[in-house]
Simulated assay, not measured.
Amino acid sequence: MRFASLGLLLLTLSSCSKDSEGAGGDHMTATDVGDALDERAIERGILPDLNNLVFAGRFETRSELGTDKFCAVDNGSGTYKIGVLAVFGPESKCEGQGSAKIEGEKVQITLAGKGNCSFDAEYDGVELRFPGGVGEECESYCTSRASLSGTSYFMVEEGDDGARRALGRDIERLCD
């Protein structure tokens, strides 16, 4: 019985790498089939359209330490006013405001006010991920034992109005 299941699995996997014939007699590769499935998922709203990402909004990630927050307000010139709060307990956090520019899935983040802090993050239409190392220049935005490195935020509410509702700790409204 195990060998039959293994054989079926291998047969299925091998068929993924071979060409298959489409409805119109065209040959479709596994990549073509995957692209077609992605298109249908985008049309139905299951996957975000990477060519038309909505970045303005309120993002959050909840943990036992607190709620991390990120917000972005579109300023109409291709950049966004942003705010961020990464929580590491009642007294430990990173918090700041600045600007962002989005190009495809790359987001250029710049925090201003406590020093030069700039880095590239990734955004897939649902989750915003900061890199594993944001650099020492960003430490001025954090208390001891806190860092923006490796934090992530999920879109919870689209639009500028939602972004303006994001509350900080020392900064009353992260995106005012």
Rank of each mutant, 00 (worst) to 15 (best):
M1W: 01
M1S: 04
S5V: 02
G7K: 05
L8N: 09
L13M: 12
G25S: 06
T31F: 15
V33G: 05
D35C: 03
D38K: 07
E43P: 01
G45S: 08
G45L: 08
L47D: 06
L50F: 07
V54Y: 03
A56Q: 10
G57Q: 02
F59R: 02
E60M: 03
G66S: 09
G66A: 11
T67A: 08
K69G: 00
F70A: 02
F70S: 01
F70T: 00
C71W: 03
G76M: 13
G76Y: 15
G78M: 13
T79A: 08
G83V: 05
V84I: 11
F88E: 10
E95R: 14
G96N: 07
A100Y: 11
A100N: 07
K101P: 03
I102P: 02
E103P: 00
K106L: 14
L111N: 01
A112Y: 03
G113S: 08
C117F: 03
F119N: 06
A121Q: 01
G125R: 06
G125A: 05
V126L: 05
V126E: 06
E127N: 11
G132A: 04
G133E: 12
V134A: 01
E137I: 01
C138I: 07
E139Y: 04
Y141G: 04
S144A: 13
S147E: 06
L148G: 00
S149T: 10
G150V: 09
T151C: 02
S152L: 10
S152M: 12
F154Y: 11
V156D: 01
G159T: 07
D161I: 14
G162T: 08
A163N: 05
R164C: 04
A166Y: 05
A166D: 04
A166M: 07
G168M: 06
R169V: 12
R169D: 08
R173D: 02
R173C: 04
